[in-house]
Every structure is written in structure tokens, then in C-alpha cells.
Simulated scan of single mutants.
Amino acid sequence: MIVDPARVLDAVELPFLPNHYRGKVRDNYDLPDGRRLIVASDRLSAFDRILCAVPYKGQILTQTARWWFEETADLCRNHVIDYPDPNVLLCRRLTILPVEIVVRGYLAGTTGTSILTLYKAGERRMYGTVLPDGMRDNERLPQPIITPTSKEFDGGHDRPLTPDEILADGLLTAAQWDEISATALALFARGQEIAARRGLILADTKYEFGVDADGNILLADEVHTPDSSRFWKADSYTARVAAGERPDSFDKDVVRSWVAARCDPYRDAIPPIPDDMILATSAVYVEAFETITGERFVPDLAGETVLARITDRLRVFASAP
């Protein structure tokens, strides 16, 4: 697989749009009329830092989330208005709730807040849940659990929370917690059901919710993408777990695991990630999109570069009221 560097969107610079905020992998522009433009770059983030840029990742994630937003619209409202470009979402501007909701169906993960990391450190009581002794890596949990973390908006490390702490700290009201926890479990069940039909296991995922001007809670950010979720291939799962091997995945754990094996990713400099691994990761994203949606991935090759294409299509918003 050979990719023209012009088709990689690492940095997003759109000075004609107002109120720019750069996130880890997305660039946000708040329009004066209450709408927001979110441009998905190809940056790959893990361990609270940027690791590399993966060709076509931004388009794939935006289009995968679009597919899932449509598949779950009957379960909850979301922030989507339109898609002016394959990498760009036009959405309602929300006040993001300060709790990130992670639903987990398996004992998995590599980050400091993952239940597998905590479990291997000897913890059994976590996130308000008690897990049984004797579980193996990547084993299915007795039932899906919610593992909420704080949503650190200024680059700080997210911290594990229990429902009692969420309410005691005033992060959410009891009514908000009841609504988003029930919605998250319903979304996860839908995601697992659809994934199973595609020969996949949805092991865990994160959700973000926000409140609109009228106080309604809406699903925001992305949903069931390879960046926000851990997908495994079902046909090889049992044999690989029995052998103590990592399940075949459709997520960025490929890069995360490579980095974590070579340094402390929270403290050390990240070693250069080989080009062949980056290209292989891009191929995994393409395969994930096509497997999840049943559609063929077609990269948008308009414009001399991805940024030039997006610039041309978003100029109409420069004069938005």
C-alpha cells in the first residue's frame, strides 16, 4: 500500500473560520449561529498524546460514525446536522458533560484506566463494580459494565470514577446519570448485536454526551468507530484467548501495544513508529469500515491535498451569520 503524503491530513489550518479549538485528533470551529464544524484529521492519539498520522483515518472515522449515528437514531438523539465533506461534521454545539462513559463487555485494555490494567495490578473493586477472581486477559465479563472517567478538557489525565463519586462531586445530576447510563447500555447492546452479524465482537467503547441550549442530552463526538471502540474478529477469538494471545482487532491497539512494549508512553519519548506499521494501520481502518458497514471505502481524492479540498468546501461557512 503506497499513499501520497498529500492525502494525509496531519495539521488543519482554516484561518477563515472563527473560534478555532484544536483537540487531539479533531479541529473545531464554532460558528456564530450556534453550529460547530468538526474536522477529523488523520492524527492518532493514545496515552494522552499524538503518536502519528494514519492515511485516510479522518475520513474513515467520520464516515463510520455517520453510519452508526444513523443506525442508532431510534435509541437517542445526536448532534449531527450535516456532512459538508467526508472529513467534516456540521453539528449542534453542545455543552459536553464532564464524564466520559466507557462501556466494557470484556476484561481488556492497555491504558492506565482500563479494567485489565487495574485487574492485573490486583484490584477487584473498580468503578463501583466488583470483578471475580481468576479471570483471564480478554475474557468476557459476566455482564457489560460502565466504567466512567473524568473528562479532563485541558489535557490532564482522565481519572476513574464511581457513580457515587459522580453524584457527590456534582459532575452530573441523578437524572442525568440515569439517562446517560441507560442510553449507553442500550447503544452498546445495539452495537454488539450489529457487530455480531458482521462477524465481529464489540468488546468495549466510549460515549460522550452533551447538553443543548434547551437542556436535552444528546450523543456527541463519535460512536462505535475503531478509535472509540475495541472490535475483535469473532472467528478467532476463542482460540486466541485460550492460547493467551491478544484477539485479532480492528482498533488502534496495534500501535498502542507496539509503543507500550518499547517505553513508558506516559513519561518517555515515543520511538519513531515504522512507516510499514502506519500503512498497515491504515489498511486496518479501511477493513474495519468495510466490515462494519458492509460498504466499500472510497477515498475522496478531490483537490491537490486533503486540506485544499476541505478548504474549498468550507469557505461557504466563512460568512455564516
Rank of each mutant, 00 (worst) to 15 (best):
P160G: 13
D137F: 08
V39G: 01
M126G: 09
G170V: 04
R104N: 03
G105I: 06
A184N: 09
E165W: 04
D158W: 12
L185H: 09
P132S: 11
S45R: 01
R66M: 12
R104C: 05
R93V: 01
Y127M: 11
L116V: 14
I146Q: 01
D85K: 03
R136E: 08
L185F: 06
N87A: 04
A46S: 09
I180M: 07
G58N: 11
N138D: 12
T95K: 09
R140S: 01
P148D: 09
T162D: 10
E179Q: 11
L90N: 04
T149L: 03
V103G: 00
V99Y: 01
T62P: 07
V39D: 03
W67N: 09
L116C: 14
V102A: 01
K120E: 15
A168H: 14
N87K: 05
R136I: 08
P55Y: 10
Q59I: 01
G58D: 10
C91M: 10
A108S: 15
L131G: 04
F153Q: 13
D48K: 01
R92Y: 06
L51S: 06
W68I: 04
D42L: 03
I96W: 04
L75I: 10
W68Y: 13
R125L: 06
L116K: 14
S41E: 04
K120V: 08
R159A: 14
P163Q: 14
W67D: 09
A65T: 15
D137I: 15
L185S: 07
T72D: 06
M126V: 14
A65E: 14
I101Y: 01
R93W: 01
M135P: 07
L131R: 08
F153P: 10
R104L: 04
P98F: 05
E100D: 00
G170W: 12
F153E: 15
D154W: 13
D133P: 02
I146K: 03
L94C: 02
C52A: 14
V54Y: 03
A73C: 13
F47Y: 12
G155P: 10
A108D: 11
D85N: 09
K151T: 10
P132M: 08
A108Y: 04
G134V: 08
F69T: 05
R159M: 14
G156M: 11
E139F: 02
R77Y: 04
L167Q: 15
T111P: 00
D169F: 11
Y83I: 03
T183V: 11
C76I: 10
G109K: 05
L161V: 09
I96F: 00
D85S: 09
L94P: 00
T173H: 12
G170M: 13
S181D: 06
N78K: 05
T183L: 06
Q176W: 06
L172E: 10
G58H: 09
P98H: 04
T149K: 02
G58I: 02
R93P: 00
D42Q: 04
R159I: 03
E71Q: 13
P98K: 05
I96Y: 02
A174E: 15
L107V: 05
L167T: 08
Y119H: 14
A121P: 05
I60V: 15
